[in-house]
Amino acid sequence: MTETIILFLLALMILGSLIALESKDILSSVIAMGAVGFMLSAIFLILRAPDIAMVQVVIEILTLIILIRATISRDVHTVTDTRDFLPLALNMVLLFVFFIIAAEAIRNMPDFGTGLSKVAGHYLNRGLNDTGSANIVTSVILDYRAYDTLGEATVLFAALIGAITILRRKAKND
């Protein structure tokens, strides 16, 4: 039952992303993107990941705001025709190679719903006593693997600094 619902939502996500990429109007493609994100959040909820579903909903709203504020009132005549022949052919070759490699990788995956990493048992058994945190995800990101969070904070900081630096020079010139 769970599997069927996830398959249905995934098919809808694929449909939404195709609409987002092929639509002629930029605004409608951004809105289709929002639909894709909310369906992803629903899938996270079904997959028993409430933390991530919560973050995904809010992040999706913020992404929509960013994209709409960046694109609206710009680019009235959208470009719809494809690229030149040679780059397009090269890209198709790249996509084909990726497809073959990914299909091979997917074939060797364990079945859906069976693969649990070995370290997960340790975390689940001892997480409460080691860290005192009832939410095991929190205990992983902030105690067992806090270095990961430290690196994440650094990447976030770097990305924000990059965005602010790219956008700031014009403001000073004015």
Partner: peptide, 29 residues
């Protein structure tokens, strides 16, 4: 019960909040 996890949570919340707000502010400006 979490010990320092509470402080870490607050620190990360402050960081994410201010960072995302700043980037939005700059984009809208």
């Amino acid at each position: 019960s979490g010990g320092t996890i509470l402080i870490y949570n607050i620190a990360i919340a402050l960081k994410v909040m201010a960072g995302l707000f700043l980037v939005f502010f700059v984009l809208s400006i």
